[in-house]
Amino acid sequence: MFKRLMMVALLVIAPLSAATAADQTNPYKLMDEAAQKTFDRLKNEQPQIRANPDYLRTIVDQELLPYVQVKYAGALVLGQYYKSATPAQREAYFAAFREYLKQAYGQALAMYHGQTYQIAPEQPLGDKTIVPIRVTIIDPNGRPPVRLDFQWRKNSQTGNWQAYDMIAEGVSMITTKQNEWGTLLRTKGIDGLTAQLKSISQQKITLEEKK
């Protein structure tokens, strides 16, 4: 169930391209415009997507990853294993993690069937560096609404905000991946996880038929 919630949630996290980005210092504006741009692209490019579902990787690479804190999220997933990894191991892992996100997020976007969304009203940021933004996803086919909290983090150097995690039903996506990959990290280390991520990233994206 959580895996499905995570995939549905990713439908609204794909941010804007650099040329049309919203105010990078306001995570609420980023979330709002990102959702609108993403849904528009999914709707307008269905012919290309249906002809070649792996085209979704391109959308992810162009529109999402430049505005997601990939390395920060990847380091959180590694936890204690990050500090013990060599620079070469980290570089290989982050490259594999990025390719994994292209496949995983692309597969999530393949679930698009006309969903709509509501974003919580903007709250004062103050001096906060981590801000959760509640998004409610509404399914046109009558499924119950899904309420999610996207975690946005302020870059201490640039002042810009980027998304790095999502919490559904009190469970963090980062925590879920830590639990899912924990045994592999304990037995085969970061190299074993890197190899698995490379394998997963090679899987073809498949479209979910409308139910």
Rank of each mutant, 00 (worst) to 15 (best):
A35M: 13
K102I: 03
L76S: 05
V8D: 06
G192F: 12
I167W: 01
P53G: 10
R50I: 15
A75F: 06
V70W: 01
R153N: 03
L78I: 04
M7H: 09
Y105A: 15
P15W: 06
R147Q: 15
R147A: 10
A73P: 09
Q103I: 09
Y28M: 03
K102V: 07
T25Q: 00
S17P: 12
A92T: 00
T116S: 03
S84W: 05
R134E: 14
V77L: 13
V68N: 11
T176Y: 13
K43V: 11
Q157M: 13
A19E: 04
N179W: 03
T206Y: 15
E63K: 15
G142L: 10
E122P: 11
V171T: 10
D61F: 00
L101P: 06
K83Y: 06
P47M: 02
L5Y: 14
D149G: 05
F94Y: 08
L207C: 12
M166F: 03
M1H: 02
K71R: 06
P47C: 03
G159M: 06
G159C: 12
N160V: 08
M7T: 01
A18G: 09
L16A: 13
V8K: 07
A34N: 15
V171W: 07
L10I: 07
S201K: 08
G114L: 12
A18I: 00
K71T: 05
R90A: 13
I200P: 08
P15M: 11
A75L: 06
N52K: 01
I138W: 10
A34C: 13
Q157R: 08
Q118M: 04
K71L: 11
Q46K: 14
L65G: 07
G159Q: 03
H113N: 03
D23L: 02
Q62I: 13
N26F: 01
P145I: 02
Q115F: 09
P15H: 07
Y100W: 05
Q62S: 04
G74H: 13
K29M: 11
N52W: 00
V135G: 10
Q103W: 13
G114Q: 04
S17H: 09
P27L: 06
M6A: 02
T158F: 14
A163I: 15
L185N: 15
S201T: 11
R143C: 03
L56P: 03
N160I: 01
I59P: 05
E209D: 11
D139A: 08
Q196T: 15
L148H: 14
L76T: 03
L185E: 03
D149A: 06
F94K: 04
L30R: 04
L42E: 05
N179F: 15
S199P: 12
Q48A: 06
L10S: 09
T86G: 12
G126M: 15
S172I: 10
I137E: 00
E63G: 11
Q24T: 04
Y28H: 10
E45D: 12
M111Q: 01
G192A: 00
P87S: 05
T86V: 03
K211D: 12
E180M: 02
A51G: 09
L42Y: 14
T58W: 07
M173W: 13
Q123S: 14
L193W: 12
V131K: 09
L185F: 02
E91T: 09
T176C: 06
P53S: 10
P144L: 08
Q115H: 08
Q69K: 05
A92D: 00
P53A: 04
L109Y: 00
M31G: 09
K198Y: 00
K177Q: 03
P53W: 08
D61L: 11
A22Q: 00
Y93I: 14
R90S: 12
G114P: 12
G189N: 06
F39W: 11
T194Y: 00
A163V: 08
E45R: 07
L65Q: 11
A88H: 00
G79E: 02
Q202L: 06
Q69M: 01
R41V: 13
D40C: 15
P144D: 09
G126T: 03
N155V: 03
K188V: 07
N26C: 00
Q118E: 03
Q157F: 06
L148V: 08
Y117V: 09
A14M: 10
P47Q: 02
M111G: 11
D40E: 14
Y82R: 02
R147D: 15
G106H: 01
D149H: 03
V12T: 01
T20W: 02
Y72T: 07
R98Y: 15
A168W: 15
Y112Q: 05
Q89F: 15
T20P: 12
A120I: 02
L197F: 03
E208G: 06
L78Q: 13
L65W: 03
